[in-house]
Each structure stands twice: as structure tokens, then as C-alpha cells.
């Protein structure tokens, strides 16, 4: 339903996308996962006809979005990172306006708006000005706006960024509901939990390049087992713990200086845990926590990129390959 091939985009000197391929079969959900500035939003903006790529193609429902953008716009609905709804209109007025801009007659637009409001649980608030809505209600209305045209494909750019956990779960339930009805969905997120919960397949993007693709289980399987995690008491010991754990796991340990956590992919849970405990104890290093758990997508991301996800990114100093947030975010 969505086919992307060799997508490239640069903003001045900054390369946002360096050749991205994606496939989202009909009725499935692809989670596009990556830290801020990885290029997720750029992918969505190109598919949504808001940006023209420097090279490559994107097809939605068989329509080339660059060659025939106006026809493509009938095929997808877009829900953005910012709740793009008008605060001085009511919820109903917002959706009726969108319906009319799809070329619907006024009565039809009115019916579709009412239907979307009902579906997103906004019927009671429909005639209130949107500026009185909570953040979660605005996002729901934004989602509603993308449904008015009854698109086959939904594009969602970080639909739950900035929402509190309860509101996020609520929105997830609405999204799951849509997907059950056969909508094809491309979703960008920086929350691994979100991709894990909503997506059939996950594509991991970093610095404008896809670095992994598969189901959540496949990606977790890449780590090849469980993860041993040590939280070191003093930051100064983090590097030593990485040294101590060398050779007992399936890969080298990785460290996150900020959280003082060392992670090590392991195959033999108990044996490795005991060995790690022995080595740390013998070295006389104090730790706050030591345990083995099933890998999360965080572990996958860390082992794929050597860096942690989300806001951790902000803490690392800019290196040669780093993208600025502008445009590429």
C-alpha cells in the first residue's frame, strides 16, 4: 500500500535521508522508529506531498506522490506531530471544513464529521471551541481530521509525543481500533513501547538510513538472547565494569554514562549472572542493581546504533555525522 524506494533529501548541507526503502503491505502497520533528527518526519512529509524528495519514489495505493500529488492526497490521511486543528473553531467546524476541502458536499461533510467525532469519543465536546480541549482531545480531533476523507492509508507522525501516559494509552486504543478495520498505517515514533504495541513491523532509522527492519520479535531476536543490566553506583566505575564483563556475553557490553547502566547481551541467563556478580564483587565495585531481563526494543536500538534512544541523544556532543534537528526532525 505504501512503497518507498531510494528516498533522498537534503536541507542545504544537512542530509536528512540518504536513500530509504520502505514497504507497508495493505492492512498492516509499520512503525518507523528512530531518535530525534533521524529523518522520520522527513519520510512522512515526503509521502504526504508536503516535501519533494531530491531522489527516489514514494507510492501510496499505487499513486506516485511526486508525479500525481493531487490524486495521492485522496488516498492518505495525515495526523501530525503538532495537533493541526484550529483553536477558534469548534471540533465539528474543524472536521466539516476538512470534509469540504476534500470536495464533499456540505451535508456529506457534516455526516462524516459527526461520524468521526462519534468514533473518537468527541461527540459531547463537538460544539466546543477547540482551544478549550485538553491535549489528548486535540490529538484525537487531529486524528479525526485525517479520517474524514476515509483514506486507505494513514500517516501518523509521532501521534503521542508529549502526551501523558494515560492519554497515550487512550490514543493507542483508538489507533488499534482503526487498524482492526483494515487501515494501512505508517507511524513514526521515538517510543519503542509504542512501536512494539501498535506495529506489525518495525523499521529502525538513524541518521537518514534504515539500519534494521523486522517484527518486534525478529529485532529482539537479533540480540540473540537476554540482556544483563548492571547499574553502577559511581560513574567512575562504569568503564571498569564494561571491561570486567568482557567475554562472558555474546557481544561487548555497552555503557550509558548518564544513567550509569551497563548492558550486556547474554545467552545463558543464570551462568552469566553469577559470573558477572563474582567478577564485580571481586573487583570491589559497588552496584545498585544487577539483573537479567528479556530484551526490550531499547536494547535492540542500543545494540544497533551503539547509542541510546530518545532524549539521551540530546546529551551527546555533536559529532561529524550528526544531523541538526532542523528540518530532519
Amino acid at each position: 500500500m505504501i512503497v518507498v524506494r531510494g528516498l533522498q533529501k537534503a536541507f542545504g548541507e544537512t542530509v536528512a535521508l540518504a536513500g530509504v526503502d520502505l514497504d507497508v503491505p495493505e492492512g498492516t502497520v509499520l512503525g518507523l522508529l528512530g531518535p530525534n533528527g533521524a529523518g522520520k518526519t522527513t519520510v512522512v512529509r515526503i509521502i504526504a506531498t508536503l516535501l519533494v524528495p531530491d531522489a527516489g519514489t514514494a507510492m501510496v495505493a499505487g499513486i506516485d506522490v511526486v508525479a500525481d500529488p493531487q490524486r495521492a492526497r485522496y488516498a492518505f490521511g495525515l495526523a501530525g506531530q503538532f495537533a493541526a486543528v484550529d483553536g477558534v473553531l469548534t471540533g465539528r467546524e474543524n472536521l466539516e471544513m476538512v470534509g469540504q476541502l476534500y470536495g464533499l458536499k456540505r451535508l456529506e461533510a457534516r455526516a462524516r464529521a459527526a461520524e468521526a467525532l462519534e468514533r473518537l469519543g468527541l461527540a459531547d465536546a463537538a460544539d466546543r471551541l477547540v482551544r478549550t480541549y485538553s491535549g489528548g482531545m486535540r490529538r484525537r480531533l487531529d486524528l479525526g481530521a485525517s479520517l474524514v476523507g476515509r483514506p486507505k492509508v494513514l500517516l501518523m507522525d509521532e501521534p503521542t509525543t508529549g502526551l501523558d501516559p494515560r492519554t497515550r494509552m487512550e490514543l493507542w486504543a483508538f489507533i488499534e481500533d482503526l487498524v482492526r478495520d483494515g487501515t494501512t498505517l505508517l507511524l513514526t515514533t521515538q517510543y519503542l513501547e509504542e512501536a512494539d504495541r501498535l506495529a506489525n513491523r518495525i523499521a529502525v532509522i538513524d541518521r537518514g538510513t534504515l539500519i534494521a527492519e523486522g517484527t518486534a520479535d525478529e529485532l529482539k531476536g537479533r540480540i540473540g538472547g537476554d540482556v544483563l543490566e548492571v547499574r553502577v553506583s559511581t560513574a567512575a566505575d562504569v568503564a571498569r565494569v564494561v571491561e570486567l564483563l568482557d567475554g562472558i556475553g555474546t557481544e561487548r557490553a555497552t555503557a550509558d554514562e548518564r544513567t550509569q547502566k551497563v548492558r550486556l547481551p547474554v545467552r545463558e541467563r543464570v551462568e552469566t549472572l553469577l559470573a558477572a556478580a563474582r567478577r564485580i564483587d571481586e573487583a570491589g565495585i559497588s552496584v545498585d542493581d544487577l539483573g537479567v531481563h528479556r530484551p526490550s526494543l531499547d536494547d535492540v536500538f542500543l545494540s544497533l546504533t551503539g547509542r541510546a534512544t530518545e532524549s539521551d541523544n540530546e546529551q551527546t556532543p555533536p559529532g561529524p555525522g550528526r544531523r541538526r534537528r532542523k528540518g530532519a526532525a
Partner: peptide
């Protein structure tokens, strides 16, 4: 800056 223009630009209007 609020994304409303992007909403319009993504519609077949």
C-alpha cells in the same frame, strides 16, 4: 507554525 497550513497542503484542495 501550528501545522494548519500543512494540514491544508496535505488535503486534495
Amino acid at each position: 507554525s501550528a501545522g494548519i497550513t500543512d494540514r491544508f497542503r496535505s488535503l486534495p484542495m
